[in-house]
Design a binder for these strands. Structure first.
Lengths: 73, 73
DNA sequence: ATATTATGTAATATATAGTTTACAATATTG
DNA sequence: CAATATTGTAAACTATATATTACATAATAT
């Protein structure tokens, strides 16, 4: 469950605590998501998107080949 | 938690049962998601994307004004 | 070096996503 | 219309996302 949350957060100069506050979850939750050890809820994904100014695809779409791309598009 | 899963599914001529099978969840889960009464997991969102050949943004990004667009982009 | 800030991670608890079974209601097709 | 397929929904259950508390380590600053 890889993603680019960490990269986007640091681009914005935000700390995990700040992102956690802005998205209304715990610092631990953010940490686990960035580490790819968690499968977040769509609502939380969207909150994170708003907080760092990126879209779902930009943050959570798995890059080519990383997962099955069988029949996409 | 509105989305365009139903529309995308019907475009593909799929039934809820077929989409459920292809994504490995129950028909009820699909129904609730389409009805906007559920907050699905990112993993499930991605499964649905693969199944209907759309991206996260296409299926789950909230349309302009529907939610706070405060500071996106 | 030593505070202080930022992050990783574990244990236990709680909320909620997803299942199972079942039945009703609405299409759709003969 | 009647038969069948498709969808909505409810209750009780299970799995897991997230919270809470706590401690350890890495980084940065003083």
């Amino acid at each position: 469950m890889m993603n680019s949350v960490k990269h986007a957060r640091m681009e914005r100069g935000m700390t995990q605590v700040q992102l956690a506050e802005k998205t209304g979850v715990t610092r631990q939750t953010i940490s686990l998501i960035e580490k790819g050890k968690y499968n977040p809820t769509l609502k939380l994904c969207l909150s994170i998107c708003y907080a760092v100014g990126k879209s779902l695809d930009q943050l959570f779409w798995v890059n080519e080949g990383e997962k099955r791309e069988e029949n996409y598009r």
